[in-house]
Design a protein around this nucleic acid. Structure first.
Lengths: 155, 155
DNA sequence: CTTATGTCAGTGAAACTGATATTG
DNA sequence: CCAATATCAGTTACACTGACATAA
């Protein structure tokens, strides 16, 4: 009759993950505040640099939030002239967003500041350890992914 | 003249950490909602089980939040009879909190549910990988810790 | 005086759900 | 009718800073 286990505060990876994320978020906020960017706004710009012409819904999926939340971020960035969205589109409703010159320039500065924070965070880890950590985190994310319509077993 | 590096969305450990934390938080919320607990409340109860008689300020430090934030969590839990704090104390202002019977019972259920989520998240990782991940996360947390008054270099 | 604590009040950043309209 | 998108509106959970009182 083994009891289901409970969480041990000192050994819980989940709680450590949460604390690490809180610490990183605080450090990023500190670096981004002088640039007038929130962490969400920064992340959105970074996604757009990697792949332009993404719609609100696409960006939302990439960042694990609802399209409503993402739309608010986009409105803020568009209002400051950091990105552009076409008023009208040929087909459908999706309006692909692109960085403006100002947006790309600010992102460059922000990205360097964030990279510096990341480097500080990973200071004690060598290259193999970093690769391993990234891989482990991606595994965790995949394992937590809610069941999709196309998943095996849903048929 | 090597340029300072910028963030690569696909390789960034910081962004992966954020996504993992978001995913975990959502999964925990889902499990805790039926019990009427938020993630912050759960974490607070877990800290108190591990070490009772902690004050609001002590709990706040353990969880990386301000004592104001923690106090609000404590008030909520106390209002539901899940923990007790003495009205008056012999010395100082610190009021050590303790779980009530109800609080301990609810925490037990919550902790099992959260442990199940954590197990699901870590499904693809073996025991050594889990220990390694925990260790790496703690290193990241330590590296991000803001400079303390007693740190070397602060004279 | 200094430090740590508790607490009230206001604010902020970021998400959520629900409802409605548009397009294919 | 259905699915995906955009967007408005309201709400929620959670944290923060500032200010003030209290106690060692």
């Amino acid at each position: 009759m083994a009891q289901p286990r409970t969480v041990d505060v000192d050994r819980s990876i989940g709680l450590a993950l949460k604390r690490a994320a809180v610490s990183l978020n605080a450090a990023m906020e500190e670096e981004l505040r002088p640039l007038g960017l929130t962490v969400s706004q920064y992340a959105c710009l970074e996604q757009l640099r990697r792949r332009p012409e993404q719609s609100s819904a696409e960006l939302a999926r990439a960042m694990f939030v609802t399209r409503q939340s993402m739309n608010e971020v986009l409105r803020g960035l568009q209002g400051r002239g950091l990105l552009d969205r076409p008023e009208e589109v040929d087909r459908g409703r999706a309006r692909g967003a692109r960085l403006t010159g100002d947006g790309a320039a600010l992102l460059q500065r922000a990205s360097r500041a964030v990279a510096a924070v990341e480097d500080r965070m990973l200071d004690a880890l060598g290259t193999p350890a970093r690769d391993r950590l990234h891989d482990d985190l991606e595994r965790c994310i995949a394992a937590l992914r809610p069941p999709q319509p196309g998943d095996p077993g849903a048929a």
